[in-house]
Amino acid sequence: MNTTHAFSTLCLALAAVLAGCQDRPAPVAPPPAASAPEAPKASPVADRWVGTWNGPEGTFLKVAGAGGAYDITVQNLDGPRTFKGTAAGDHIEFERDGTKETLRATGGVETGMKWLSEKKDCLTVRSGEGYCRD
């Protein structure tokens, strides 16, 4: 190899090394992704239960409210009483006389009440305490 060729090769290698050492601008980060608008929260299933539900012998259940907070009025043979209820998944929870109660959707048979056994659209607190829409 002649000196000129060796010198040229050395110069090219040195230029490549120096090019690698140069200050380069930092890579530009991509702009932050636009955050997707927050999806509206689904209304609790219990929002569909708002209204009056009838039981036997003049009893009824009335659900008022929306968005997970409800007033539950229970009219039984002793008169009406109202309780604060909260949506909890597929049911409403409320406290009555120190006991946590659960109001859930059922058919008439699940109410445990023969007067409601033929009904399809009902709410049940416990077996023997149910209310249906006519």
Rank of each mutant, 00 (worst) to 15 (best):
K100E: 15
A15M: 09
P32S: 04
A34T: 14
I72Y: 03
H91S: 12
P25D: 07
A29T: 04
G108V: 07
Q75C: 08
L77H: 14
E118P: 02
L18C: 10
G108H: 10
S127G: 12
K119R: 03
E101S: 12
R48S: 12
G68P: 09
H91A: 14
T86M: 00
V28I: 07
T73W: 00
S35I: 14
P25H: 07
R48F: 10
W53C: 01
D121H: 09
A33L: 08
F60S: 15
A64H: 02
A42L: 14
K114R: 14
L116N: 03
H91P: 00
T102F: 03
G20C: 14
D47I: 00
E101K: 15
L77I: 14
C122K: 03
T4S: 01
G58W: 09
P27L: 13
Y70R: 01
T4K: 05
N54W: 14
P31D: 13
P80C: 09
D97F: 01
T82Y: 00
N2K: 07
T59Y: 03
A69H: 05
G79Q: 09
G79A: 02
P56E: 10
T52G: 05
K100R: 14
A87L: 05
L103H: 02
L123M: 02
T111N: 10
A46M: 08
K114L: 15
S127M: 15
W49D: 09
E129W: 01
D71S: 15
S117E: 13
V17A: 15
T73I: 03
P32H: 08
K62S: 05
H5G: 12
T52P: 05
R96F: 02
G130N: 01
P25K: 08
A16Q: 06
W49V: 09
V125G: 02
A46I: 09
A66L: 01
G112E: 13
E95D: 15
W49K: 05
A26W: 03
A15W: 05
R133C: 05
K120V: 15
A105R: 02
K100I: 14
N54R: 15
A36G: 02
Y131N: 09
P31Y: 08
A69N: 06
C122R: 01
G20V: 10
P25T: 06
G58I: 08
D134I: 11
F94S: 04
P37W: 10
V74G: 00
T124A: 10
G79E: 06
G79W: 07
T9H: 06
G20Y: 10
S43P: 04
T106M: 03
V109M: 11
G130T: 10
P37L: 11
T86D: 00
T3Y: 08
R96I: 01
W53Y: 05
